[in-house]
């Protein structure tokens, strides 16, 4: 059974239909990527799954349970976390406070401490800057913080919405390495990207979203090899 199963999901903004009945699934241990042009509905999909936008129709099942109508804090509590588009770290708070907020639902202080130690080990720069106001970090550091904050929740499923946006090529490669690494440690990944080439490179399976409809699906390698996809999303 899939860890995440989205069925006939339909989302409207007022009269604008952003998602027109999409279905896809993410199995435990996979890296699944959702690619598509700007405005295709990728962010809408991510936000609807985590309970920020109520869907018009369709269903979302996670870990065997129907979460379609659950409030976000209950969904997050089931082991799902998200690195949102544009990172959305808490700019006015310290690095440490951001990390603590990532573990908001964990009340066991010793577990929180252990997770912070883990994060600091993986990203020593964050340890150095733990008391710094997050808004003063560089773009790359902010992305590290956004990913670390999501990891603080100890998620089973981690969703990342365009984590490479606005980063230098070197940092982009680093971000994809980190994603692969997190997956190797047992975290299931749902990755949204405009950088389709890189995303398809690390994905087990992929879906292509066009104007609120899923138009293609297959393994990462299949889609990366498809002429049509190459033309539309890989720059030739």
């Amino acid at each position: 059974m899939a860890l995440l199963e989205v069925k006939d999901l339909q989302v409207n903004y007022g009269v604008i239909r952003a998602l027109n009945g999409i279905s896809f699934e993410v199995n435990e241990g996979e890296i699944v990527t959702l690619i598509g042009a700007n405005g295709a509905g990728k962010t809408t999909t991510m936000q609807t799954i985590i309970g920020l936008i109520p869907p018009k129709a369709g269903s979302i099942h996670y870990d065997g349970k129907d979460i379609t109508k659950l409030p976000s804090h209950k969904i997050v509590n089931m082991g799902m976390s998200q690195v949102p588009e544009g990172r959305r770290i808490f700019q006015e708070l310290s690095v440490y406070d951001n990390l603590m907020l990532g573990a908001y639902l964990e009340k066991d202080m010793s577990k929180i401490k252990a997770r912070i130690e883990n994060v600091f080990e993986q990203f020593p720069i964050l340890k150095e800057r733990r008391s710094q106001i997050a808004g003063t970090l560089s773009g790359g550091e902010q992305q590290m913080l956004a990913m670390s904050r999501a990891l603080m929740a100890n998620p089973k499923l981690l969703m990342l919405d365009e984590p490479s946006m606005g980063l230098s090529p070197l940092l982009v490669s680093q971000v994809f390495e980190i994603i692969k690494d997190m997956n190797a440690k047992g975290i299931t990944i749902l990755l949204v990207e405009q950088n389709a080439e890189k995303a398809l490179g690390i994905a087990d399976r992929a879906y292509v979203l066009t104007n609120g409809v899923i138009t293609h699906q297959g393994t990462g390698a299949e889609l990366a090899g498809s002429e049509e996809i190459k033309k539309a999303y890989l720059g030739g």
């Binding site: 920020l52 804090h73 509590n77 998200q82 959305r88 908001y104 929740a153």
Partner: peptide, 13 residues
């Protein structure tokens, strides 16, 4: 206060 949506993603009610 800073970002309600992001706060919700942290599991804040």
């Amino acid at each position: 206060s800073e970002d309600k949506g992001a706060a919700q993603m942290m599991g804040i009610n």
